[in-house]
Design a protein around this nucleic acid. Structure first.
Length: 572
RNA sequence: GCACCCGUAGCUCAGCUGGAUAGAGUGUCGGCCUCCGAAGCCGAAGGUCGCGCGUUCGAAUCGCGCCGGGUGCGCCA
């Protein structure tokens, strides 16, 4: 049981005993400043307003009913009607000790669900670029978190392996000399750009490309073979990136667009049977009232082109049907760029109306902002292209290597490279994970590759420091009690007991930055504790106690970072 | 024209279902390595929370209207 839950129960009980209706929540929050205690209950004021009584008087009555002597040594009314709760050191110490000896740092969910997580989803016609970072990393962190909480998580990598650009690529490939094909494909990004230039500038080439699309869709063996060649090369690129990024996606999670091709006619006929289709200007559309603007116009979703071709809305509907009927999901999360918001909302709405998903199934677009350049305009490199993900990661590792070499030249090169990998990748991931999902974000090499301040290396450093202590401590009594005397010890223990709250909030909001904030604060509390409270030099009981606080901090940091997909190391 | 997202310190961002004196990081300035790792710690300076109106005992947070930025809007995905 978390502290906030416990306090909520106790306060709610007292409020009801004081005659307050159970519809008024206690509103328990960590206090904003130390003089206001550890937690505050803010619900009294709203309740007092409803029954038109003085909030401080009502608070007094609640306190008369409140049984909190076992956990708090001071409970006081403050300001207009806040209740400030100061937790007992002895109680916090026992809770921390219990957490340290438990097999898990938190309680698993009481109601496990089957949750589909759609993330990464790169277009296989090109290499992954920095724009794929958010979906891949945030989706992966949320997947790990939900899994850790005891849900059944099904990862779905909805890769783009179908569509017109593959005709272009096949046409370009076929026109290369045989012996150069493999070499060319090694740099898929450049190959794509070359093909695109020809497609835009050479009408005859564009015509051949379109012809290949038709052949491909008709199942022409030679086209299929080349297409599969692209897919294989491209997927391998992706896997290299996932591997380097420590992202859990594997080949088994890949469910490409093309996998739904055979289902598309059935999607259309179901929509038709439900009376949802309208033929407009030759195309089959779904018009829904809820997408009508003030001007009275409805934005339609086109599900079949006038030439009979299907669109991505159709594929997404087929995917939803699969995720519901075959995978049996009760919650489906999409970690997709905010620009797809209208499209996804249309698809979600149609899927419910057509019965592809159950009414109770939760469909959530975990949107994130567009990547911008330093000028606040959508991001482009000097050449107008994109930064490849492999290049960004390589640069991160290189910078981290230089840093570790400067800080710890005595470590051998293999270890420095290992550290550089963990630190560099961690920094890049944390830079993205620690920000609120929804706002646009500025792509900046320096902030993304920073190793100071609120960064992954700061958290990793805290872990390394703790490891260093344990290397130096000759004996550690793991049976010893935890005792809290200093303010820094109190704050650290308190923060350690809030891990569960942070993890649960990531699961419900789909926002790993909540966990990042928590871990940064935890590290800060540890650093303060470390500076203020000598560990190894303290007398026996205090030393043993502090060692255990350090141990619990290490466990929490390691687990928390693991949920974010970031590694730790013993020294750095 | 319509729709969605965003405007918080010089810069990058937190701010949980409205709560007390709006917080970090970075940058600037000043301290701290004979002492468990200075990728660190302690302190200072720095903000009309885009603007206005409203709801409320109380608004960065909720509602409405503006201004500014971004994105999307029928046969690409």
């Amino acid at each position: 049981m978390t502290i906030s839950k416990l306090l909520d129960q106790r306060l709610s009980r007292a409020m009801q005993a004081a005659g307050i209706a159970d519809t008024f929540p206690a509103v328990i929050k960590p206090s904003g400043r130390p003089e206001f205690g550890d937690y505050q209950a803010n619900g009294i004021m709203a309740a007092a307003k409803a029954v038109k009584t003085n909030p401080r008087e009502l608070a007094t009555r609640v306190l008369e009913q409140l049984e909190l002597d076992d956990v708090a040594d001071k409970v006081e009314i403050a300001g207009p009607g806040f209740i400030n709760i100061h937790l007992k050191n002895s109680w916090l110490a026992r809770q921390a000790k219990a957490l340290l000896t438990a097999d898990s740092l938190l309680e698993k969910t009481a109601s496990p669900e089957t949750i589909v997580i759609d993330y990464s989803g790169p277009n296989l016609a090109k290499e992954m670029h920095v724009g794929h970072l958010r979906s891949t990393i945030i989706g992966d962190a949320v997947a790990r978190t939900l899994d850790y909480l005891g849900h059944t998580v099904i990862r779905q990598n909805h890769v783009g392996d179908w569509g017109t650009q593959f005709g272009m690529l096949i046409a370009h490939l076929i026109e290369q000399p045989d012996h150069e094909r493999d070499v060319q494909l090694a740099d898929l990004e450049t190959f794509y750009r070359q093909a695109k230039i020809r497609f835009d500038e050479d009408e005859a080439f564009a015509e051949r490309a379109r012809h290949f699309v038709v052949k491909l869709q008709a199942g022409d063996p030679e086209c299929l073979q080349h297409w599969q060649q692209f897919i294989a090369v491209s997927l391998q690129h992706c896997e290299e990136v996932y591997n380097k990024l420590n992202v859990l996606l594997t080949r088994a999670d890949v469910k490409p667009e093309s996998a739904y091709n055979k289902d598309l006619p059935g999607i259309i006929s179901t929509l038709d049977a439900r009376g949802l289709l309208t033929r407009d200007e030759g195309a089959l559309c779904v018009f829904l009232e809820e997408f009508k603007g003030k001007d009275g116009n409805i934005v339609p979703a086109i599900v079949q082109k006038s030439d009979g071709g299907y669109l991505y809305a159709t594929t997404d509907l087929a995917a939803l049907q699969y995720r519901q009927q075959v995978l049996q999901a009760s919650r489906i999360l999409y970690f997709v760029d905010a620009r797809q918001s209208l499209h996804l909302n249309q698809v979600f709405s149609i899927a419910k109306k057509a019965g592809f998903v159950k009414p109770s199934t939760s469909l959530e677009h975990m949107a994130f902002g567009t990547m911008m350049g330093k000028d606040g305009k959508p991001f482009k490199t000097r050449e107008g292209g994109t930064v490849k993900l492999v290049d960004l990661l390589g640069e991160a590792e290189q910078r981290a290597f230089q840093l570790v070499t400067r800080k710890n030249p005595e470590l051998d090169e293999t270890e420095r490279q290992h550290i550089a990998h963990i630190v560099g990748i961690g920094a890049v991931k944390y830079a993205d994970l620690s920000k609120n999902r929804t706002s646009d974000y500025i792509f900046n090499w320096d902030t993304m590759l920073s190793f100071e301040g609120n960064t992954a290396p700061y958290l990793q450093y805290a872990y390394a420091r703790i490891s260093s202590i344990f290397r130096k401590a000759e004996v550690v009594d793991t049976q010893a009690d935890i005792q809290l005397h200093q303010a820094a010890e109190h704050q650290l223990a308190l923060k350690l007991l809030q891990f569960s709250d942070a993890v649960h909030s990531v699961a419900s909001e789909g926002s790993p930055n909540l966990l990042c904030n928590y871990l940064f604060e935890l590290s800060g509390n540890f650093m303060t504790f470390y500076e203020a409270c000598p560990i190894l030099k303290a007398d026996d009981a205090v030393r043993d106690s502090r060692l255990q606080l350090a141990q619990l901090t290490a466990n929490t940091l390691k687990t928390g970072l693991e949920l974010l997909g970031i590694d730790v190391m013993e020294r750095m």
